[in-house]
């Protein structure tokens, strides 16, 4: 799956991993994932693109 997320302005890079895992957990159990792009949206906003392989919580 691919996920697009707006990077919270007050979230530093060294806290991204925990936040991203929380976002991914809403879609299942992540098996493998990575940020594949960071796109500026203007006014200091950034969009993260993630690609992930998820498993269901029963698997």
């Amino acid at each position: 799956m691919q996920l697009e997320l707006i990077w919270p302005a007050d979230l530093p890079a060294n806290q991204l991993r925990t936040w991203l895992r929380e976002q991914l957990a809403q879609h299942g159990v992540p098996l493998r994932w990575a940020i594949t792009a960071v796109e500026p949206l203007g006014a200091g906003c950034r969009q993260l693109k993630l690609e992930a392989v998820m498993t269901s919580s029963e698997q």
């Binding site: 060294n14 991204l16 991993r17 994932w33 990575a34």
Partner: peptide
Amino acid sequence: GALGGEAVLACLERG
């Protein structure tokens, strides 16, 4: 250009 994986991000967390 490939810093978005979980291992690298975890290393950033712990400095």
